[in-house]
């Protein structure tokens, strides 16, 4: 499976959100790192066709995803950044509704819900109303719906926002297990989320891809003497060197 982004650009009025972006994703975990406003969410929005692209193409196995339409979305699991939920629904009802939207047959819906609830540690909240969920639980519920139907392309926009360190660890472990035969795109501005699990990391700034490669390659790419004496050569140093700012949010 190959997801190719070819020279994709997107502007909001005069503001360039994504500039001539090209990259090819294969099975594996891709961490997309960048500060707020770097264009991460725009890139994910373009891949999920929630945002209309101005230029370029996005191909899955050589065919444009817009042509594939439903066939592409059948492979897709998407967790958006906004915590939009139906407040009056229970967790189970919400997941059942999303399962229906994902064309999961009626007979399999309950089994799928039973599968994703423990994965996201939501079993105890299965019958709680969405309005009664904490921020972290809402985040996990959005992840749970993305995992429904075992999608081959998993797109996660800031999945760890609002999670406590233990939940973050659990989520990272789970994503690492998922990556066997699927493409996982994980957009974040928190380096520790992807350091240990990402096969490749894409560094974005002002809508452009600054650099990409495995974490070790990126660390090696740092010019000698570019780090302060007390800084270890790791992905955090890479973030600071290429993007500046606070790598831990």
């Amino acid at each position: 499976m190959e997801l190719t982004i070819q020279n994709v650009s997107k502007k909001y009025g005069s503001k360039v959100a994504l500039k001539d972006f090209s990259y090819t994703f294969h099975e594996g975990i891709y961490g997309i790192l960048g500060a707020n406003g770097a264009g991460k969410s725009t890139l994910l929005g373009l891949i999920t066709d929630n945002i209309k692209r101005d230029e370029g193409r996005i191909l899955l196995n050589g065919t444009d995803i817009l042509q594939q339409g439903k066939a592409f979305r059948r492979l897709l699991g998407f967790m958006p950044q906004q915590q939009g939920l139906y407040e009056g629904m229970t967790v189970t009802a919400f997941l059942a509704y999303m399962a229906r939207l994902k064309e999961i047959p009626g007979g399999r819906v309950c089994a799928e819900i039973d599968r994703v609830l423990p994965l996201t540690n939501l079993s105890d909240a299965a019958h709680k109303k969405c309005y009664a969920l904490s921020g972290g639980m809402r985040q996990r519920l959005l992840l749970a719906q993305a995992l429904l139907g075992d999608p081959k392309i998993l797109i996660l926009d800031e999945p760890t926002a609002g999670l406590d360190p233990r939940e973050r660890g659990r989520l990272r472990d789970h994503i690492a297990q998922l990556a066997q035969d699927r493409i996982v795109l994980l957009a974040t501005h928190i380096v520790s989320d992807i350091e240990a699990i990402a096969d490749d990391v894409l560094l974005m700034r002002e809508g452009s891809l600054i650099r990409s490669g495995s974490p070790s390659e990126l660390v090696e790419s740092l010019p000698p003497g570019s780090l302060p004496p007390d800084q270890r050569p790791d992905l955090e140093a890479v973030y600071l060197y290429y993007l500046g700012g606070d790598p831990n949010g």
């Binding site: 929005g45 999920t48 066709d49 929630n50 439903k70 979305r73 059948r74 897709l76 998407f78 958006p80 906004q82 939009g84 939920l85 139906y86 999303m98 229906r100 939207l101 994902k102 064309e103 959005l142 719906q145 797109i155």
Partner: peptide, 10 residues
């Protein structure tokens, strides 16, 4: 929830 819905098949 529009982005969420649009990301699903139906």
């Amino acid at each position: 929830t529009r982005a969420l819905l649009r990301g699903s098949v139906r």
